[in-house]
Design a protein around this nucleic acid. Structure first.
Lengths: 343, 343
DNA sequence: CTGAAAGCGCTAACAC
DNA sequence: GTGTTAGCGCTTTCAG
């Protein structure tokens, strides 16, 4: 393995000078710089990242912390990870995966190893136990999502408030007056106080109030099976509903299928909007889904971007809430004359 | 930050002794060991991973290399990554993401940084330029997939041969005699010589020959749209087909929708088997898909498992080919009396 | 069983 | 502009 010392000898300079040209950290004459670069090339020299990290106290590695158990990381979670890794690379950083529990102790251990310069937290809960250790260790971090008090952390998130408002507004403009919001069940602990649900529900209550509508909220599971069952439940529990907004794409497609089994037509009998959904998922449905497209890729890039900025400037950038974009599909239309439960 | 030296002083021993208890690398009396552990606890000591890595020449980090551009990493790609990261953690390793081009030079640079102890390569091509640098650097590595000469690398892979054979056999046993294989188009360079396609097609030719059937192969795009169009094409180009095996889950669901639009019933008019597909995806289809379930999670775990074993024992474990399991859905049944193109 | 000391390969003062 | 050198925090001989 060729080291800096080898390069220095080969070029007839000291290792300090080699370091200066590699890091561009002090002026070096064009001549010696050229000589050194030639030597590096000739010897196939590659700086040892570990040694650099130890000496400089910067590893140039970021961590991506996410819950190991949950299979909740759907399509947009994947987008997020991939985008974050790519952007990190563009900034000269590597991305390390940190699957884990939502555990503060674990975070403390990981941070203690001093293996990363910064951390990105996925699936943040309103009261997330991982945040305190991060603050205590003074490690720069970014949340994807928000804690209860968003002001104390750098974060990027989907603008759930805006998203649900836009979704409801879209349906309202089509003429719908009985709109049901389907959130996830909060039974499992990891979903309790799950920001996206809480925020969306709250905003839904607000927007329906402003429009003079009743805020009907139904909880459902996160898979296609739960969605299928939902078709039944809606009919009996919400006979007057003419439109549904869902927070889960699997449930949305399941609902579509369930309705089909009941000889109900979408959108003629019921309109459907699926939030936090990707175009790919929308295209798998029949009819194709009207969605609020989740900005997974943009969030991943932004999280890295802002984290790196904080690390280099020392100042925390303002939080960013990204809107979801309404992508019309075939699952929305004006309401039927007779709601599904009144036939 | 508390270092090993602090612990040593606090416990009244030398740093070497502290190191011995941490790494369990030399006998230490119960008494001093207890004293040291107490000191570590009291001071909240956490070993510095970077310093350890430099001194021991082992970083305890594995890299997961995958193509950055392609969005090909579907559901099972995600499963694989998550599973690999989890398993790596269980073995005391971290997983670092290495998005990249299929480029040998890039691999050389990354390896030169000596930041990882081993590498897992995803989306391996038959003639993958990343393999040579890996061998040259003597870095242990595992392929998920196979090169043209599988004997020269540790690898784990889906047993495509077995999978397509089982799929065809399943249909044959139901009575089908005109079975079409739908592979992906190999237009883009990154799909050219893509192992899964090549192997599957070859095995398909074999199994149909053994069964006395014609080996009909059709190429299609990788999304739902391409699948929809396929419905049309099959009808005209393959009028006698009674069953289809697809290599892409998006195309499979698209085909289902396309057939539905043509008033064709699945499975009554045409049977469908979708390979490399997850249960979740199968449940999104109507009717639910009969699939060959891709062992994404198992592969991820196995890749790490074998790589770690090679690193610790120094011997390369045998390759493993995992079968896909036939999970019956609603999309297969005995063939119709009249094929779709003969009405 | 424990300690002293020589690195691991590089960065970053500080001196020249 | 360039060189000398003291670490970074730990592992690992080698003595004792």
């Amino acid at each position: 393995m060729t080291t800096m010392r080898d390069v220095a000898e080969h070029a007839g300079v000291s290792i300090a000078t080699v370091s200066f040209v590699i890091n561009n950290t002090k002026p070096v004459t064009q001549a010696t710089r050229a000589r050194i670069e030639a030597s590096m090339e000739a010897l196939g020299y590659r700086p040892n990242a570990v040694a650099r990290a130890l000496a400089s106290r910067r590893t140039r590695v970021l961590a991506l912390a996410y819950p190991a158990l949950d299979h909740r990381l759907g399509g947009s979670g994947m987008e997020f990870m991939i985008a974050a890794a790519r952007r990190a690379g563009e900034h000269g950083y590597h991305l390390m995966m940190w699957p884990g529990t939502n555990d503060g102790r674990e975070m403390t251990d990981l941070l203690g190893q001093r293996m990363v310069d910064g951390v990105i937290l996925m699936e943040v809960q309103l009261d997330d136990p991982r945040v305190r250790p991060l603050q205590a260790s003074k490690t720069p971090y970014a949340l994807i999502g928000r804690t209860a008090d968003p002001s104390d952390s750098l974060h990027v998130d989907i603008d759930f408030e805006q998203t649900v408002t836009d979704a409801v507004r879209h349906l309202y403009d089509l003429g719908h007056r009985r709109i049901v919001l389907v959130t996830g069940t909060q039974v499992s602990e990891s979903y309790y106080n799950y920001g996206p649900y809480v925020r969306t529900e709250r905003a839904f209550v607000d927007v329906t109030a402003r429009l003079g509508l009743e805020p009907v909220i139904v909880a459902s599971g996160h898979d296609a099976g739960a969605g299928r069952e939902l078709a039944q439940r809606l009919r009996t529990e919400q006979p007057d509903a003419t439109a549904v907004v869902l927070l889960n794409e699997f449930a949305a497609i399941g609902l579509l299928i369930g309705l089909h089994h009941q000889q109900l037509r979408v959108p003629d009998d019921l309109s459907i909007v699926s939030m936090v959904t990707s175009d790919e998922m929308a295209s798998l449905a029949e009819p194709t889904l009207t969605i609020m497209r989740s900005p997974g890729t943009e969030l991943g890039e932004l999280a890295v971007e802002h984290l790196v900025r904080q690390m280099t400037t020392g100042q925390r950038p303002d939080p960013v809430l990204l809107p979801s974009i309404l992508v019309p599909g075939e699952s929305t239309s004006p309401p039927p004359r007779t709601p599904i439960g009144r036939r």
